[in-house]
């Protein structure tokens, strides 16, 4: 839930001040597979966190990134679907995660002004 609230806050702060009554239609996210985020539950929390905000009708577009590890022994990179966190080349387990921890807002998509937002906001 905390994560959904932060997404809403960041998205609102990214609305250019010169757009009046801006309505955000879409938030584009990049979410790694090795995060605390499960896309379906994030969408659920986002729908609650975004009500009564310029994001009330916004959808979340989630680009998932795979888990990629780099071997500390031979340097090879392996994309893993599931454990073990081990190098596919040499089998070594001394690995660092180089991708899969992303939790980034990439962009917001704001509705064009002629599509009037009717609902009142403070």
């Amino acid at each position: 839930m905390g994560i959904a609230i932060r997404i809403v806050e960041i998205a609102i702060s990214a609305i250019p001040p010169d757009i009046e009554d801006a309505r955000i239609e879409r938030v584009n996210l990049k979410v790694g597979r090795l995060t605390a985020v499960v896309p379906e539950s994030l969408r659920f929390c986002f729908n609650i966190a975004s009500s009564d905000t310029p994001l009330a009708s916004a959808s979340l577009e989630i680009e998932e990134t795979p888990i990629v590890i780099e071997c500390g022994e031979c340097g090879a990179e392996t994309t893993i679907e599931r454990p073990p966190f081990a190098c596919s080349e040499c089998g070594g387990g001394k690995v660092t995660v180089v991708s899969g921890r992303e939790l980034d807002i990439l962009s917001i998509e704001v509705a064009d002004p002629e599509v009037e937002a009717v609902e009142g906001r403070e």
């Binding site: 998205a11 962009s107 704001v110």
Partner: peptide
């Protein structure tokens, strides 16, 4: 629709 880049963690 106008896309606005954010790129923030």
């Amino acid at each position: 629709m106008t896309e606005i880049k954010v790129v923030r963690k």
